[in-house]
């Protein structure tokens, strides 16, 4: 495993300069002819990646959260909910996307399904754990006051479980946005195309793609952290500090 000689600082900086230029002005494709990169293509691919990520995250939340709420409220099915989370982590993302594309076909719907599969386990597990860990005394008190079961879930359990549930949503979002990077393998062009199709975009495109994907993931994580902070009740925030 021979490593290449360490690049000179100048060469190092110039590659970052190339990546910067790639994003803002574009360059000629390695294959010749057309111009690739530039703000318009960057925005197009970034929009696609956000769209695919949010769609898959929404599907995962819609499928996993009700099940987690129901099981958690009834304090049943711990084995199912927890082992789903454990098994989900073992799914090799690359194999999932590749198999989905090869066996069922390429396209947006298939990709969103594959990505949602990655998002379901952490949301299911964390929703279950968050709800079932709510102090039973609070739940009994609410029941004693005459609250309906849906009222208990909505007004007592859910607010108290927000930090844990959002933790699951954030794990799912990070995994989905990361895997959406290899979506070009399933025929949907996201920012990952800059990284995967090096023969078209060159090293400048690869580095630019890597930087953009990292920024997108950090921005998504920051947004979700802010949403979590806004959704957490004042009482819980006081408790934590």
């Amino acid at each position: 495993m021979a490593l290449p000689p360490p690049p000179l600082p100048a060469a190092f900086l110039s590659l970052f300069g190339d990546a910067f230029n790639f994003v803002f002005s574009g360059r000629e494709a390695e294959t010749g002819g057309v111009t690739v990169g530039g703000t318009s293509q960057v925005i197009e691919l970034a929009t696609k990646q956000i769209e695919v990520t949010l769609l898959a995250l929404a599907v995962a939340i819609l499928l996993a959260m009700p099940v987690g709420l129901w099981l958690g409220h009834r304090q049943q099915g711990e084995f199912l909910a927890v082992s789903a989370g454990n098994a989900g982590r073992a799914i090799p993302e690359l194999a999932l996307i590749a198999l989905m594309a090869a066996a069922i076909g390429v396209g947006l719907v298939n990709l969103v399904v594959a990505l949602a599969i990655l998002g379901i386990p952490p949301i299911l597990t964390n929703t279950y754990v968050g709800i079932s860990q709510v102090d039973r005394a609070s739940v009994e008190a609410a029941r004693g006051m005459g609250m309906s079961e849906t009222g208990i879930v909505r007004k007592v359990e859910l607010p108290l479980a927000v930090p844990t549930i959002m933790g699951g949503v954030r794990t799912a979002a990070i995994n989905i946005v990361a895997t959406a990077t290899i979506a070009p393998l399933a025929g949907i062009l996201t920012l990952g195309d800059f990284i995967i199709a090096r023969n078209v975009y060159g090293d400048a495109g690869v580095l630019a793609g890597a930087i953009l994907v990292a920024l997108m993931a950090l921005a998504l994580e920051g947004t979700l952290a802010t949403i979590q902070w806004a959704m957490t009740s004042k009482g819980l925030k006081l408790n934590r500090s």
Binding site: L3, P7, I182, V206, L207, A210, V213, A214, A217, L218
Partner: peptide
């Protein structure tokens, strides 16, 4: 943790190849 691994590989490209 948040930076996707596939992106991390290529951020390291100018340093470790």
């Amino acid at each position: 943790y948040t930076i996707p691994s596939i992106s991390f590989f290529f951020l390291l490209l100018p340093i470790t190849g």
